[in-house]
Nucleic acid binder design. Structure first.
Lengths: 232, 232
DNA sequence: TGCTGCGATTGATAAATGTCAAACCTTCGT
DNA sequence: ACGAAGGTTTGACATTTATCAATCGCAGCA
């Protein structure tokens, strides 16, 4: 793998504390690949041969069952995905496709497991990462089970607002079709949900959202750190 | 903590490979406590002071938001819970209550973290356990998002049948009220769902289920290893 | 034995969500 | 500039799921 992205990857929590030697060894065995949009990188059920790192573009994780499909996450630079499958040497539970032209570093799972055994700092970082991912997944379950679709949308908007810097005006950064699937609703339902949030000060213009009555929206959404916070 | 349960706990994947010394050290710092039914052991948001091991009875993990409540998991002997919060030293995301008179071993989180650092085999086991839990949670998300409540019930019955040994006749082992919450439906809806499964050979008598047309039910449920299998 | 309380069921109704079809709009490539 | 493709919105309608109220039935207990 070329050198160019190494410093960025090295900065990830997952890799920042490991020894130089082990990091170089991981990188040495990896590939940097560029993919066009809409390429299915992983199909669920496949064995997990590589830990993936998105360094450019974006990748959607999704799942299929019985001819239905749902969006589970959208991975943006710089982050890894399918760490759990890699470590357990188990089949991937989700499929992955590029949403746009993307660059992905592929680290052979075998090397990840080998260096996990050799490098205590790396092992510690892996545990942190896994625990975080696990907790994020629990939060998603709570969001799904405890909230109506309207409430999920309202809270999503507040989270997205925060991610985008906190201003009253921000971009969705996701197609509405995909957002609908992510929030477990149909595009039609999402469209109507936006209208239902208008009384709470949500203005929609294409992918631009403006929140004109912040406290009204928060009052309706009732965000909870135990569901909506990234870090907790 | 008294000695009596140690051999059983030692057999758990999480503890079976660690050094004797470290295991004894963990146990030495732990408490065995007996709780009556319906005691709230943990309230979500609390800091995670102990890793819990249910050695007798059963414990429900559930979550609250906005005056609603949902059942997330039921823990039966012998298993641990809230490992992720313990490791991250983060607040618990779920509450826990005993369903019946139960005995629980409480291992101080601090000791778990300390010995994680000291014992590579324990660290490895923790990673396995976390990765498993993470994957189980992803499967739950897929189940929730991709299936209707009727399909969730049908697949639940097939899983429960397997857990109970695979015979045509088996017990639910859970109040229907709780099962409904676990499957994200109301008790009324669950009751009707059972009736809707009658054409597929599901007979209900109290908590006893008899599956008279196995292949019909499987045909309807379409279980997938990537959602329903324990081990994958 | 007969209460009592609570879970389970049933029926009627309401609310939430999905489906289908059509129209609209934006983007993109020729 | 034009047309095609596909995402978005809207309306009408169907289905799923929840809510409310009443009843049933069983387990625990005086």
């Amino acid at each position: 793998m070329p050198e160019s992205h190494r410093p960025d990857i090295r900065k990830l929590d997952l890799f920042s504390e490991m020894s130089d030697e082990n990091f170089q060894s991981l990188m040495h065995a990896s590939y940097l690949q560029t993919f066009p949009p809409q390429i299915e990188l992983i199909t669920e059920g496949d064995s997990s041969d590589f830990l993936h790192v998105v360094v450019d573009g974006s990748v959607e994780l999704f799942a299929r069952w019985n001819n239905r499909e749902t969006s589970v996450a959208i991975i943006r630079p710089i982050s890894t995905f399918i760490l759990a499958a890699t470590l357990r040497d188990a089949p991937n539970l989700m499929s992955a496709r590029t949403l746009e032209k993307s660059r992905v570093v592929l680290i052979p799972s075998e090397d990840v497991r080998r260096i996990f055994d050799a490098d205590n700092n790396f092992a510690r970082a892996i545990v942190c990462e896994l625990a975080s991912g696990y907790r994020a997944s629990i939060k998603k379950t709570k969001d799904l089970k405890l909230r109506t679709s309207l409430e999920r949308l309202a809270n999503y908007l507040l989270r997205q607002q925060t991610r985008e810097g906190g201003g009253a005006e921000f971009e969705l950064q996701t197609e509405k079709k995909r957002l609908a699937s992510y929030l477990n609703m149909t595009p039609e339902n999402l469209s109507r949900a936006f209208k239902s949030l208008k009384p709470y000060g949500v203005e929609v213009d294409g992918s631009k959202i403006t929140i004109t009555k912040q406290s009204d929206l928060e009052n309706f959404a009732r965000p909870s750190p135990l569901i909506d916070d990234k870090t907790v």
